[in-house]
Structures are given as C-alpha cells and as structure tokens.
Amino acid sequence: MTSTPPPTLERRPRLLIFDVNETLSDMTHLGDRFVEVGVPPYLAAPWFAGLLRDGFALTVTGHNPSFADVAHASLRTVLHDKANVEAASRHVMAGFLELPLHDDVRDGIRALAGMGLRLVTLSNGSADVAEGLLARGGIRDHFERVLSVEDAPAWKPAASAYAYALRECGVAPEDAMLVAVHPWDVHGAKAAGLLAAWVDRVGAPYPEPMYAADIVATSLTDLASRLESLPAS
C-alpha cells in the first residue's frame, strides 16, 4: 500500500481530536530524568518508541493495557542494570507529571478555539496526565473533553479507539479531524474514516506506505492558519 495525495479540504471539521504525548507535550524533558538515574538522555526516545510498540502488540492480540504498566515494564528493561530499578523507573515516570507544552501549543489552541471549533484530547496515556498538562499550560478550559483509551476498547491506532471518541462527542467521522505528530496515529484515523492533520515540527519525511494526512502543518499555530482559510462547517 502506498499513500495517496490528500484530498482538498472544502470546509473546516467540527471537532478536533488531539493526541497528547509528543503532540501537545514536549517530552524531550524526560531525557533529564534519564540523566538523573544515570542513563544517557538519548535513550528516552527509543524507550518511548519501544513502549508504544509493546502497547500496539498487546492491542492487536486483544488486550487494552494501562499505559503506565507498559511504560514501567519497558523502563525496567532499559534500566535493568541499575541498583534500584523500581526507584529509577518511578523517577522517570514522575516526569510525565511535569512535562510542559510545546512552545506553539498555547497560542495554537487559543486560535483554534477562537474559531469555534470543538476541541478534545484522545491519548493512549491516562486522562489524569493529560488533565495536568493542560492545566499547567493554562489551556484546559478550551477542551470540552479529555479522553483516554483506558475507557475505549483498545489503544490507538485501532479503529475502535477513534470510534469511542466519536461516540463520546456525538460526531460523524467525516466531521472530525485527528491532530498528531505521529504518522501511525494519522494513518489509524484515516483508516477509521476521520480527517487527519500531521504536525511536522522537525521537517521529517512522511512514511509513504501510510495514508496521507489531509493537512500537513509545521505547528499548531500553522494548523490554525490553514483551517482559518477554510469555510466553517
């Protein structure tokens, strides 16, 4: 399968569904936590990719695991040679409770909310972590719902995860747009019939085998500008 050129959007979606980890939160700060437990900071990125891989594997075999449980298990593998693996793992995981927003998020969210768009989150992580992130960033009041796959049948990118969000918000797939930095999330949303926006903050090429995003933006403020140019639904 190869990706196809995205269709030309004729109108704004009614609902924007935001991924949380890495899309809204700046997870580079977790590298500091790795340093504090005696591990090189560059291991943070492959650790997070590995925990997603494990979560996806559990999902396709019929399980819906807790993000925290999968993350802890993955950390124990990375930190296995530390004297106190459990304490080190808890220290790294506590970093999720202090992550900041990406620099573009606050202004982008306010601009999108100012257009009258409905905003919700849908995270493979916990709703409590997402709630804390939005509250610390001063943008919680712009989101009508903070949703987690903990209450859905499966992790994203399973179709049932997106269907759960649509049911909770009472919106048809064609009226909803996922917003994410992860191509796998964009692909999953497109496969489930939603629109999707890919936020490419680093200028990386999009994986050709995956369904193309309807919008490619360099930031949430860029996404707001692109959507503002479209007629309202």
Rank of each mutant, 00 (worst) to 15 (best):
28 T>N: 13
29 H>V: 14
29 H>F: 14
29 H>A: 08
29 H>C: 10
29 H>I: 00
29 H>P: 00
30 L>M: 14
31 G>W: 12
31 G>L: 11
32 D>A: 15
33 R>E: 12
33 R>C: 12
34 F>L: 13
34 F>D: 03
35 V>N: 02
36 E>H: 10
36 E>L: 04
37 V>I: 14
37 V>M: 12
37 V>D: 05
37 V>R: 11
40 P>Y: 03
41 P>Y: 05
41 P>S: 15
41 P>K: 05
41 P>C: 07
41 P>V: 00
42 Y>G: 06
42 Y>W: 11
43 L>E: 11
44 A>L: 05
45 A>F: 03
46 P>R: 02
47 W>R: 01
49 A>C: 01
49 A>T: 06
50 G>R: 11
50 G>P: 03
51 L>M: 15
51 L>C: 06
54 D>I: 01
54 D>K: 09
55 G>D: 04
55 G>P: 05
55 G>S: 15
55 G>E: 06
55 G>L: 00
55 G>H: 05
56 F>V: 12
56 F>L: 14
56 F>P: 00
57 A>F: 07
57 A>I: 04
57 A>D: 08
58 L>S: 03
58 L>E: 13
58 L>N: 01
59 T>G: 06
60 V>K: 05
60 V>P: 05
60 V>Q: 07
62 G>P: 03
62 G>A: 07
62 G>M: 08
62 G>R: 04
63 H>Q: 14
64 N>Q: 06
64 N>E: 08
65 P>V: 02
66 S>H: 08
66 S>N: 07
67 F>L: 10
68 A>M: 10
68 A>P: 00
69 D>A: 14
69 D>K: 11
70 V>C: 02
70 V>K: 06
72 H>F: 13
72 H>Y: 12
73 A>I: 02
74 S>L: 01
74 S>W: 04
74 S>E: 05
75 L>D: 01
75 L>Q: 12
75 L>K: 04
76 R>T: 00
76 R>K: 07
76 R>F: 00
77 T>K: 11
78 V>L: 02
79 L>R: 00
79 L>Y: 02
80 H>S: 15
80 H>M: 08
81 D>P: 00
82 K>V: 08
83 A>V: 13
83 A>M: 09
84 N>D: 15
84 N>H: 05
86 E>V: 04
87 A>I: 07
88 A>K: 03
89 S>Q: 02
89 S>L: 03
90 R>K: 08
90 R>D: 14
91 H>W: 09
92 V>Q: 01
93 M>C: 05
93 M>F: 12
94 A>D: 15
95 G>M: 10
96 F>L: 12
97 L>P: 01
97 L>C: 05
98 E>L: 14
98 E>V: 13
99 L>G: 11
99 L>H: 09
100 P>V: 12
100 P>I: 13
100 P>D: 12
101 L>T: 06
101 L>R: 10
101 L>I: 10
101 L>A: 14
102 H>F: 13
102 H>W: 09
103 D>G: 15
103 D>F: 04
104 D>I: 10
104 D>V: 08
104 D>M: 10
105 V>Q: 09
105 V>L: 07
106 R>I: 02
107 D>S: 12
107 D>L: 08
108 G>R: 02
108 G>T: 08
109 I>P: 08
109 I>R: 08
110 R>H: 12
111 A>L: 11
113 A>K: 14
114 G>D: 08
115 M>F: 06
115 M>D: 01
